[in-house]
Amino acid sequence: MNTQDPSVGTYVFVFAVLLLLAALTTGIAYINLGPFNTVVALAIAAVKMCLVGLFFMHLWYSRGLARIVVLAGFFWLALMVSFTLADVFSRSWIKPPGP
C-alpha cells in the first residue's frame, strides 16, 4: 500500500512541528481569548492529529482504503455526537404551557 518510505528528515521535521504545536497549545491557554480558547485548542489538536496521522501513520502515502476507514470512523463519531446533542439541547424548546 505504501511502497514509498518517508525519509528520516520528514520524521524529524514533523516531530519538531508537533512539539512546537504542543507548546503553542499550553501557551495560548494563558491568554484570555474568551470562548475562542477552546476553539483554538481543539484546532491545534486537530492539526497535530493530522500530522501524526498523515506522516507517522503513513496515511499520506497509502491508498484510499485506509483513508476511507478513518473518515468512516470520524463520520460515525460525529453521527453519534450530533444526534445525541440534538436531543439533549432541544428538550427545552417545547414550551411547557403556562405564562
Binding site: 491557554a29 494563558y30 480558547n37 477552546t38 481543539l42 489538536a45 501524526v52 501513520m57
Partner: peptide, 25 residues
C-alpha cells in the same frame, strides 16, 4: 506502530479537553 500512534492521538485530544477548559488566565 499504528496502534501506538492512535493512543497518542487520543491523548492529543484529551489534553486540551480536560486540562484547558476555559483557559488558565
Amino acid at each position: 506502530g499504528l496502534y501506538w500512534h492512535f493512543v497518542d492521538i487520543i491523548w492529543i485530544y484529551l489534553f486540551p479537553l480536560l486540562y484547558l477548559i476555559g483557559g488558565r488566565y
